[in-house]
Write a protein that binds this DNA or RNA. Sequence first.
DNA 1: CTTGAAGTTGACTGACCGGTCAATACAATC
DNA 2: GATTGTATTGACCGGTCAGTCAACTTCAAG
Lengths: 203, 203
Amino acid sequence: MKPPCESKCKLLRVATQLVWENSYGSVSVDDICKEAGVRKGSFYYFFPSKADLTIAAMEEDWHQSRARLDEVFSCQTPPVERLERYCDMSEAHQRHKAEEFGKVCGCPVLTLGAELSTLHENIRLKAVEIMERYIKYFESAVRDAQAEGLIQTSNASATARQLFAYSQGVLMDAKIRNDLTLLADMRAGMFQLLNLAPETRAA
Amino acid sequence: MKPPCESKCKLLRVATQLVWENSYGSVSVDDICKEAGVRKGSFYYFFPSKADLTIAAMEEDWHQSRARLDEVFSCQTPPVERLERYCDMSEAHQRHKAEEFGKVCGCPVLTLGAELSTLHENIRLKAVEIMERYIKYFESAVRDAQAEGLIQTSNASATARQLFAYSQGVLMDAKIRNDLTLLADMRAGMFQLLNLAPETRAA
DNA sequence: CTTGAAGTTGACTGACCGGTCAATACAATC
DNA sequence: GATTGTATTGACCGGTCAGTCAACTTCAAG
């Protein structure tokens, strides 16, 4: 017998990959099983439905994102620089994925949310949940920047949501245009939303 | 025989509706035909494929959007006020649609682009084409605002794209969260991107 | 009255869909 | 060595998928 979890983990990994590169609707359970080298019976042993696998894959993908975000948004980094590093990381991450697949793929959670928010309530809720986790990083950075007198904002939470919505928009734009260069401009919009001159940026 | 185009127009209208409320992948040709009261043979008489119908429906939807945008972005309106009116119009439009369908549905072109950009090159290109048309309104408003000394920007085109990306992000956010109130905050981010105090706004 | 183009019909195809199921294999425990 | 829980298999289900087709209707122009 294989080590515990191997089939289940492979299904999660393959599902993330295929759905990210294509879409939920265009990827079948058979596709996932075939790519994972797992028979369909096993699929339904581990997951009650395609939607449930997808939710599990979103959570799995989050855990990988979290590792990157915890580093990028470390309190040891000056708050404004954290946001710059987030932009850089997003660009690098998208570039890496684009080299692998040949197309800009955007954010899997966002794409899934956009496709299925009106169809699968549980997938929508999972997308919202993960988006909230992202915003926490932004909010904390904005508050720290405010505390250090680097920026001025009347509402740190609202500013964080603006930053997040903007970065979402840029990412979606880059995906639809299949153009990585748009991500290089993400910094400028962030600075504008923070009321900072681009030159003010640290190191 | 029905007046020319009736079946074709009905297919276009129904397709826009169903795909907007659901998704491309979850709506079948049979669904569209049934809802339109048109037999499948006729469908394939008018459109060579499901993807081609979708592209035609995107263009059709654009023509309706254009009427609204031409009015909102009229040169007779002060440039900054145009952007405010765009925010108001987006909110009203989403509210109207949400009341009809019970859920926030976002922008059909954006949603289709997000779902299919890696799968159907022609749909991706149509989405990009329509997005460019949107940006023209923003760009013109930004340039006019600059000419009137209302705002200062080093690059009107880049600012317009920031505004568009941000509004896209907010719209997507509102769809995924199924929350119309987010759209009421769109103005604030726009003003921040334009380097304008919220109080500066006209009328 | 004839012709032919435009539009319509519904039965049909074969592949594929998500999901089910009973049977089986395996390793650990009693 | 019998029992148990975990994991795996592959055949199978009814329904749906996008797309095809030849026959048909309608109607206006010649």
